[in-house]
Amino acid sequence: MSDTPTLGEDLKRLEEIVRRLEADDVPIEEALAIFEEGVGRLRAAKLRLAEAETRVVQVLRDTAEDGTVRLEPLDG
């Protein structure tokens, strides 16, 4: 799992942002800031959703000397 926000986090935060914007008491400065954040997260989520083709890879048992694992495309 990577350090960048996951799709799940992006979607969850987006839901929070929408809820916050719908609240009556949000200061306009905050509203603008979280709206921009929401736009950014939305862009990231859509990018992730647009990823194209399923990749199927076989993990080879005979690993390299340094212990890294070798991967080889597999025809699914």
């Binding site: 399923t54 199927v56 890879v57 076989q58 048992r61």
Partner: peptide, 13 residues
Amino acid sequence: RRRWPGIEVLVIG
């Protein structure tokens, strides 16, 4: 492929 094209499957035999 049906549910989420773009996912990576690593097969460990």
